[in-house]
Design a binder for these strands. Structure first.
Lengths: 248, 248
DNA sequence: TCAAAAGTGTTCGATATACACCCATGC
DNA sequence: GCATGGGTGTATATCGAACACTTTTGA
């Protein structure tokens, strides 16, 4: 493709005033630590630092010949080493002001290239078992789980994206309840599941009713195994059986 | 902004292989003709033609300094003369192949400019009273309502977008039932509402149960007015009362 | 023996479903 | 008077919400 031609295209685009822009994906990755919902953030600096600031949502500009879903999968793979994490696109954020902060502009200059005057992003939700060992091969060497109540000020509109992701995760769980098992270890107790629901919906749930609800799910099967070394009656472990679930 | 600088930006973008692209919005506008759900399509040709083909979803590239929501509102305003139609973003379509068809490439060349080799679109749902007089000030002079069962082959991935919009409109009605009144005339009978539900969910609904359901909505108020000149018992008219609805 | 969490059933109200007949009107 | 669609009530099943006590275990 002739660059001179592209140059004309670009000038023409400016004349006509149509946007010609970069597009990124940003991922809100949820994890659950048995108490709070957490989100996986990265540090803006490429090299590890001791400073605990300047955190952002993991994301990337998308490549040529790359679909946005693929870009989100790539970001997650580079961040965690996991292929095919659960993924849900939830909104395109395209306010002309979202990348206008001076600090953000500086960072874009350094990180990508000068003069990105506008950046549109497509936001994704993802779910991850928080105790899973992550293999980070992304350019951001530091990543950290933070409870949603303790999130810092983040660049661009990342705080807004997280806020919307919270109502989105509820919609997701309502329309497809089994996604919650992606946030739990493969062996779990019913009270872990309940606490997860409580964290997602931010309200107390009745213990007995919840047991009934789980008992009505044939794909949640009891194991012959109980908690060890707990200073109270040991809870039984359960697992999610995908085979039974897929048979409906 | 110096164009030479932008030129460098562009070349650099190619080198790095990040996408630098145009972004569009496309709107799936639903209407209801008392029998079927319809969608408002435009003809690709800017001038009116007698040929009934080459229809597409109304849409537009977005401008600099324009948010995608604003672009969708603009498209709808130019198409209908109505400001602030109900609007719901539902997905970003970004497959690298979506604009690769030769005919679509030719059209982009002519319509916008040569060499748009990729185009990302953000899809919106909208609702419109089908008998409303539309004031079309867009560049597409022909627009037409077509029942969803009779849609032609459309350019790009517009058939796919429509397909997804059908499950999206159900989600919308479930999460916010009063949006259906945007598809009905301001005076309507209960059986009109029922037929609309039947069209959206594509299944028969029990008449008596449906009357009960409507009767449970205090914001649907009966008028002292009935159908005229119908060869059967005249049905009572109702209206949607926004004031009562807003008071909950 | 105490503290801490696990586990377990019943009742009630709200909501969704199923189902059949008479009414009003124009022709 | 007949064809057409309008309008109405009751019974049953399902689902979610409320609610308190006993059990197990480690310290």
């Amino acid at each position: 493709m002739c660059t001179q031609y592209l140059f004309c295209v670009l000038v023409d685009a400016m004349k006509r005033n149509y946007i010609h822009t970069f597009v990124s994906v940003d991922c809100v990755v949820f994890g659950f630590d048995n108490e709070n919902l957490n989100i996986l953030l990265v540090k803006r600096e490429k090299e590890p630092t001791t400073e605990f600031k300047n955190m952002k949502l993991p994301g990337s500009l998308i490549y040529n010949d790359e679909d946005v879903d693929d870009a989100a999968n790539r970001v997650l793979y580079e961040l965690t080493g996991i292929r095919r994490m659960s993924l849900r696109q939830f909104r395109c954020f395209a306010s002309p002001d979202r990348a206008r902060n001076v600090e953000d502009q500086k960072w874009l200059d350094k990180e990508y290239q000068p003069n990105i005057n506008r950046l549109i992003t497509v936001a994704y939700l993802s779910l991850c078992k928080i105790d899973r060992k992550l293999v980070n091969i992304s350019k951001y060497k530091d990543s950290v789980w933070l409870p949603i109540s303790e999130l810092p000020q983040m660049p661009f509109d990342h705080n807004l994206i997280v806020e919307e992701s919270l109502s989105e995760i509820r919609k997701w769980v309502e329309s497809e309840p089994v996604v919650i098992f992606e946030l739990l270890p493969s062996k779990f107790t019913i009270s872990q599941v309940r606490k997860l629901y409580e964290a997602i919906y931010n309200k107390k749930i009745d213990v007995r009713n919840f047991h009934k609800k789980i008992a009505a799910m044939p794909y949640v099967v009891a194991l012959n195994e109980k908690q060890q070394n707990v200073s109270h009656r040991a809870a039984r472990y359960y697992k999610f059986d995908k085979t039974i679930y897929n048979k409906r």
